[in-house]
Design a protein around this nucleic acid. Structure first.
Lengths: 352, 352
DNA sequence: TTGTATGCGTTATCAA
DNA sequence: TTGATAACGCATACAA
């Protein structure tokens, strides 16, 4: 679609310039509108010489197809809705960027919505995107509002979920096994000899990934006859500042933990900062672990032990699933993206 | 538009369920289609009792307006295109999130495009968004490809640019005065007594904000009879890892700088990490300053001196400008968002 | 205040 | 291979 010049969509500002239509191109090329349409959408169905003159007319007039008209006629929008909690989390920014690249290459655009951590709000966003016209919906996690689920089934548009892989997922999904990941992190600490392990995490009621990780944490503890002490669970989501505050809170509690798992790397970084501010040695006095494996976690001092995975991979695979549902045979299965324990300097055996 | 249930847009999957249309609602409510349309778009133009029964039918059928049809009829898409270099940069993620919130509240959706740092690619993205149908376009910076500019003027859709405020901007813009900000940072270092000042920055040919900052840097130096030594300009964009590598490069050069300004906080953080790895004291042996004022720059050790500003404010004001162009009188002027020098521990007077 | 008729720009169906 | 023509679903000018 050549670097066209005139398009639709804008308010006709003052000059009220008319949209260049298929008709205009047809007239200039001396053919019918349908031939122009075909020359653009199914070039092989039209004689080469005709196609050439059409293309010439197109670029001469700077014709750009009218998206809405096309969507109306084709019953398809070439647009995918993506709803994430927030772009401030590196992993979601990576997801969106990756999705956009993959879907863009296949001719789809991305319509973006933010949901915070509120499932009701997520459903509202979905309604908005749906009425805007989307061919598929990409969500984060597997817990969603009833009204959203109803909408999805009623409209029949494909839904793909991300960041949480599980066999019983309601939609095709691509993500990590959060429970196994949570377990791996705690097993690592247990192996080091820790017994008083705390967790800094989002409210599990609003975050099913966190809930799964917590299940993994509890499971690992239970397997060794231990449990998460109620005083050892502190809520705190996302930002380093929050991690700092949560760590401050935790350090004031009894019994004091010898290790802390954070469900986000930034929170872990904040926790370490707070420890330094209080002259609490990491990992001397307390071990700290993060989650996600963002680049920064490797550069801090000490470098942060974490469970790493690729949000970019999740985006790419999610795009594959979406395209399979839209243009393929719709049989592509959910995919588990691997995670890996990155053992670094912020965790060590507990002091004597 | 109640939490509807049935919408358009999806491929009709197998069952090929038909879209619920205005007509269906009209039939059920016992009125004409136009009355239904009015009940939804101009409720005050219809008798209360009628409106009620329409609304009832709407929710009964789970009617959701068909975006494309609506866009076609109204010649307006209720969609704003936003093209940014990358979501991996905190400031752009903040911009998008802020824009989305403000525009969403006004009934607009955000269609997102990523351009990297390539103006040609940005223009391609613009073409894609334009043909998807957007009512306005939000860009980053004031330097753009000719073809994009041509498209913009030909379509007549409003364009608003962000992050670079300048009087001679080709479109209404909202951002900081990058030149003044660059100058402020270097003045601070000069006041501390530095004379060998280096810069870690993106290639100015592809980044007009960086070019302006560099102009500010050079200006401040020139005012004191100094200049940027050619060996003291190292390219490196965005990520902490990149800042680390750039700093490594810089530390190997002659003459060695006593202070380094980075055009991004993450790069500054990376630079500090590299210094620590080499046992180069910050700010003892070399001062390091960042740019943007992301939260993390305050938490590092040492905390990073930076020029801070609010990308969220930029987003909010950009949304205001867009809405003014679309629904207002189109007279709202460009806005300069304030920046502030945050003097922190990473900069100090040079050693003897 | 409500209904009728028409247009929005494309694609798809069907003849030619 | 090409050209009429009928959808596609909604908004609006105009008539009632």
């Amino acid at each position: 679609m050549g670097v066209g010049t005139t398009g639709q969509g804008g308010r006709m500002s003052k000059g009220s310039r008319r949209q260049v239509t298929l008709e205009d191109v047809a007239r200039l090329a001396g053919v019918s509108a349908s031939t122009v349409s075909r020359s653009l959408s199914m070039p092989h169905m039209v004689r080469a010489s005709v196609r050439e003159s059409v293309l010439w007319a197109v670029s001469r007039l700077g014709y750009v197809p009218h998206g809405a008209a096309r969507a109306l006629a084709r019953r398809r929008n070439a647009t995918i809705g993506v709803i994430i909690p927030s772009l401030r989390f590196t992993v979601f920014a990576d997801l969106v960027e990756s999705l956009q690249a993959e879907l863009g290459a296949a001719g789809y655009s991305v319509l973006l919505g933010h949901a915070g951590s509120d499932l009701r709000y997520e459903a509202d966003q979905a309604t908005a995107l749906l009425s805007r016209g989307i061919d598929a919906l990409v969500l984060v996690g597997n817990a969603h509002d009833q009204s959203l689920e109803r909408m999805a089934t009623n409209t029949g548009i494909p839904v793909v979920t991300t960041f949480d892989y599980r066999l019983d997922a309601p939609y095709p999904c691509v993500g990590i096994d959060n429970q196994a990941a949570g377990r791996a992190l705690v097993d690592h600490l247990l192996d080091l000899g820790h017994t008083r392990i705390a967790a800094l995490m989002p409210d599990e009621r609003f975050n099913d990934r966190a809930a799964r990780r917590l299940a993994g944490v509890r499971g690992a503890l239970a397997d060794r006859g231990l449990a998460l002490h109620p005083q050892h669970l502190v809520l705190g989501d996302g930002a380093a500042e929050v991690g700092r505050a949560a760590m401050a809170e935790l350090l004031g509690r009894e019994p004091s933990p010898s290790a802390v798992v954070c469900f986000s790397d930034l929170v872990a970084i904040g926790a370490v900062v707070e420890c330094r501010a209080r002259a609490v040695s990491v990992p001397g006095a307390v071990s700290v672990a993060g989650f996600s494996g963002i680049g920064l976690a490797e550069l801090t001092h000490p470098a942060i032990t974490t469970v790493s995975f690729s949000a970019v991979d999740i985006g790419r695979e999610a795009a594959r699933l979406v395209l399979d549902r839209l243009d393929g045979d719709g049989q592509a299965p959910s995919v588990e993206v691997p995670h890996r324990l990155e053992q670094r300097a912020s965790t060590a055996a507990p002091g004597p």
